[in-house]
Amino acid sequence: MDFTPVASLIDRLTSWRVPWAEVLVMHHNEIVFQYRNGFENVEEKTPIRDNAIFNLYSMTKIMTCVAALQLVEKGDILLLDPLSQYLPEFAEMQVKKTLPNGEVYYEKAARPITVRDLFTMTAGFSYDINAPSIQEAVERTNGTLPTREFARALAKEPLMFEPGTHWNYSMCHDVLGALIEVVSGKRFGTYLQDEIIKPLGMNDTTFDLNEKQQTRLIPQYLFDEQQDKAVRMDGNGFRIGTELDSGGAGLLSTVTDYAKFLNALTGYGTSPEGVRILSRASVELMRTDHLNDMTRPDFSWDHMYGYGYGLGVRTHISKAGSGSLSPIGEFGWAGAAGCMAIIDPDSGLTVMYAQHLLNSQEHYVHRRLRNAVYSCL
């Protein structure tokens, strides 16, 4: 396998808008290629180092959904259970409706939010972290906003649509984190450490960095079109409380560390060392397309053509639609600063790609990277 095309693409990206980029490719549990280029600190021209820590943002969602599927496997929850069975505040939800003349009114939801709706982004939530009830809860908790309090606050906001009738990228997986807390009896971050992170031998994946890890947290950038350069913009705007273990966007990690988790999914839920975090049946359910005639039109991002949406992941359903060199059933997700996962059990392939640039150029980068990797196999 000659990965020269992948290295060339990384070089091209880092000479363009992306300050640094790194890719790790595993094939049948062996690292067959790892390459990085660019500057972790643009101002000081510091080359990107090994084991740099960065924000995963929405790639957190994959681990959150795996954690919740563990509870499904134990019989603690069912996908079709009403969410209010575990989080009572979601029992009486209001749906925001708009008349043709623009008048807004509210109506009681016709059906309950289910656990499955959280996985599949069909609950009716938005991604408005500035919603009044959430901001009130931030102030009331003195900026801590624990995960469980976040869910209580979100439940006070009206739904955008009847549960199950549309797909909308939202804070569903943050609520899934609260559900895991209630059902497991552990803080969400602790559950992840106990059931996934530590068993897989991952030492640098966490919601809260220790002092030593903090020294490896690297700068984050935003590409400024007017200045035609990347400008420093640190912090995670989605983690709006110091005690909010955000199941949607809160984890930090390294390329090598998170690749261990992704590769366990490539192994149908079991790591090369024999650590099982999910059953094969759960991995297959996760990568099954859960969109239907009502929700499919909403999943219309151009870089997702040819993909369906499973339990928290994109899943490849049409090579003709995607133009992708990856096989049907390849799955994964990405993050706001540009990281991306490719999980392909049928090919025995795991790809962990990382960068740390908000307005990440995802639509340009990810499809090209995927095709470059598969062309090398």
Rank of each mutant, 00 (worst) to 15 (best):
H316C: 04
D224S: 01
T206N: 06
V138Y: 02
T144L: 08
T120G: 03
L145W: 05
P219D: 01
A341H: 02
G248M: 13
Q94A: 13
I218W: 00
G348F: 03
R148L: 15
D11I: 11
V104T: 15
T122V: 07
F238E: 10
L209M: 09
H27S: 06
V183F: 01
Q34W: 00
F3I: 10
K156A: 14
T206A: 11
Y307I: 13
V95Y: 02
F299S: 02
V42K: 03
R287V: 01
D117G: 10
V182L: 09
Y307G: 12
R368C: 13
C65H: 10
T98I: 10
N37D: 08
S133E: 13
A110M: 07
F188D: 06
E181N: 08
I218N: 04
G235E: 08
S15L: 12
L78Y: 13
P112E: 02
L159Q: 01
E243A: 09
L192C: 02
I113H: 03
F33M: 06
I218V: 08
S84A: 05
Y35S: 03
I197C: 04
R36M: 07
Q70K: 07
Y309V: 02
L278Y: 12
Q70C: 08
V72S: 02
D50E: 12
M171L: 14
M352N: 02
M340Q: 08
V313G: 04
H290V: 06
Q34D: 08
R36S: 07
Y307W: 14
W20A: 01
I240D: 00
Y106C: 13
F331E: 02
Y57K: 05
K61E: 09
V23Y: 01
N130Q: 14
Y353S: 01
